[in-house]
Design a protein around this nucleic acid. Structure first.
Lengths: 223, 223
DNA sequence: GTCTGAGTTAAGAAATTGTTATGAGAAAGT
DNA sequence: ACTTTCTCATAACAATTTCTTAACTCAGAC
């Protein structure tokens, strides 16, 4: 299903096993480590998409491990999510400063964790293009788009629309489909509204990315 | 790895060697001085991030050295941590009055010292910017901010808010996230309150540092 | 030429954020 | 204990950005 890999770092074998089981069930490839040092090594060699890490650990704590991961510029930076005990206020502060992306508080509820993991992994969509190395990268966390290394800011509606098209490059979406995704089925907007937004997106990205299929709809172009 | 430098000031060569060895092993750049006078000179010329200093020393004791370091406004102030013998209660009080940040009691346990050093160095966040040399430095101990060499005083709420944003430059934080960090999840404040604080911070720092992402939140700008 | 669907533009509405003033309350100074 | 100063939250209003609509233009099909 997915080809995301997750590294879990915790000193309690029970938790490792529990999380491994639950995340495996969802189709993720799971690696484990029992302390910060081991976690650091495995992050560098396995380059997981996501690191779930306990804050309190022997040998090297989560905060430090996180800092060292962030300092290594030669790997693809994973998303880092801490496992903290409720009330560990300080760890949350230090955690963000160390470069963490999010937190889950123990005790861990499987359903909640999985939905958080999913949303964390969903944050970026990168569409690589075939020949040249121009790729588009969508960051749902910041509502920004990175195109050929440049960052482009899009207003919300334009962002959602582009995000929808990019979700299936090459697939043609009708205006109705676009409208029901971006505006929902409740609110109804005029016919030309979609066109205007398409125009504004083209204005910012260039004309080559969204192609019109007459009488059908629009598609994100695989250049 | 890290580029922190530490100056150790002690009149006992054994201790200097012992501490140098242990801190070197952790990747810190270590300098040494054998008395207060030498320590003061080296602090001014080397501008270390952290000064570990014995209280009892010939020629010039730690307290006096510390005061003189704190009086020199033209250097980047180091973190100062005293090494005291157990039971020297008086020197701790005097040390804090002189401007020390922390103390470690002898005999020194290496692991404990290292974790203390790490946590002391973690208190400061320096965000270096890319091209020009304008950097922001946040001192959580004194609630001050150093920007382009100028020191700026911020009230508590403004400080916490800026500190939060700076913790992940470029990351966009929603008003909800900001509120739960600065005000906690208990107290609820109006929607516009965050905006007003942002305005006040901009008033003091300039408009270029905090960027608004409409419909999403605010971010500390990597200039 | 006419028709149809899409592109374009501008203008006003709606949503969101910026700014200022005010008073309550906390902190600091005397 | 008193006054003064600073901080903070809020409301009201201004400014800005974003969204939607309508009217008009353009291109290709018939």
């Amino acid at each position: 299903m997915t080809n995301y890999s997750i590294l879990i770092v915790d000193d309690e074998p029970d938790i490792l096993q529990f999380l491994t089981y639950n995340l495996n069930k969802e189709g993720y490839k799971v690696y484990t480590a029992q302390n910060g040092e081991e976690g650091l090594k495995k992050t560098f060699t396995l380059e997981p998409s996501l690191v779930l890490m306990d804050v309190m650990m022997p040998i090297m704590d989560g905060i430090e491990t996180c800092q060292l991961i962030r300092e290594n510029k030669s790997i693809t930076q994973p998303i880092i999510c801490f496992l903290t005990s409720r009330g560990e206020d300080y760890s949350q502060i230090a955690g963000f400063q160390a470069g963490a992306d999010d937190y889950v508080t123990k005790p861990i509820r499987p359903r909640l964790l999985i939905s958080k993991v999913k949303s964390l992994l969903r944050r970026y969509t990168t569409v690589e293009t075939k020949e040249n190395s121009s790729s588009i990268k969508i960051d749902r966390d910041r509502y920004t788009i990175e195109l050929k290394g440049k960052n482009i800011n899009l207003p919300k509606k334009e962002f959602q629309l582009l995000d929808f098209l990019v979700s299936r490059p090459g697939k043609v979406f009708s205006r109705d489909q676009i409208m029901s995704y971006v505006w929902g089925t409740e609110t109804i907007v005029g016919e030309r509204t979609v066109d205007v937004h398409i125009r504004k997106i083209r204005e910012k990205l260039g004309n080559d990315y969204i192609r019109t299929i007459k009488g059908v709809g629009y598609t994100y172009n695989e250049i």
